[in-house]
Simulated scan of single mutants.
Amino acid sequence: MPSPSLVAEIPAAPSHLAAEHFARRLSLETDCWDVQESLKGAAGDFVLLDVRGPAAYAAGHAPGAINLPHGKITARRMEAWEEGTLFVVYCAGPHCNGADRAALRLARLGRPVKLMIGGMTGWADEGFAVVTGNDAG
């Protein structure tokens, strides 16, 4: 009998554990497509934060994103939004941990947060519109 492939060598988790795992991931993350599609609607049920520096934001950001560098996320600054506001954060992309830092700050402040996986790299890979300048657009 041939030995199992590298994929099958470690058995897959039971389905109930896989369901819990992926549900947990989706409670912490969203992707560029879901954000872009949601921005088309009028729901307004989240705030999109570009947590890179102002120069990177001005060079190109997702339409509707507000620039708030992760180092400037403070309790006082977050008072601008109602408690319970959901924040979606992104940075440059998979090579950047700015969004993780922002998500951690927000979570420690008791704010609901999701990370937009892929960041601006993912946004560009999807071919979505990019706004330049200092306005959310």
Rank of each mutant, 00 (worst) to 15 (best):
N67D: 06
L49C: 07
R101Q: 12
M116G: 04
I117V: 12
K72S: 12
A136G: 09
F128T: 06
T30F: 04
A56V: 12
M1W: 13
I66R: 14
A59H: 07
G71Y: 11
D31Y: 04
G64L: 00
K40S: 07
R25P: 02
R52I: 07
E29H: 06
R24H: 15
G64M: 05
A55P: 08
A65W: 09
A102N: 04
N134V: 10
W81K: 12
G53N: 14
A56E: 09
R108Y: 12
E83Y: 03
Y90K: 04
C32H: 02
A56W: 00
G122I: 01
H21F: 13
E9Q: 13
P63G: 07
A65G: 08
G118M: 05
L109Y: 11
S27N: 00
K72G: 13
W33V: 15
G119W: 03
A19C: 08
P11F: 09
V47L: 10
H70S: 07
K72C: 13
W123R: 01
F46W: 12
W81V: 09
A102I: 03
R76G: 12
D135K: 13
C32G: 09
A42F: 14
A65V: 05
R108Q: 13
S5L: 07
A23R: 11
L104E: 15
T74M: 01
L17V: 09
G53Y: 12
N97G: 12
E79N: 06
T30I: 06
D135N: 08
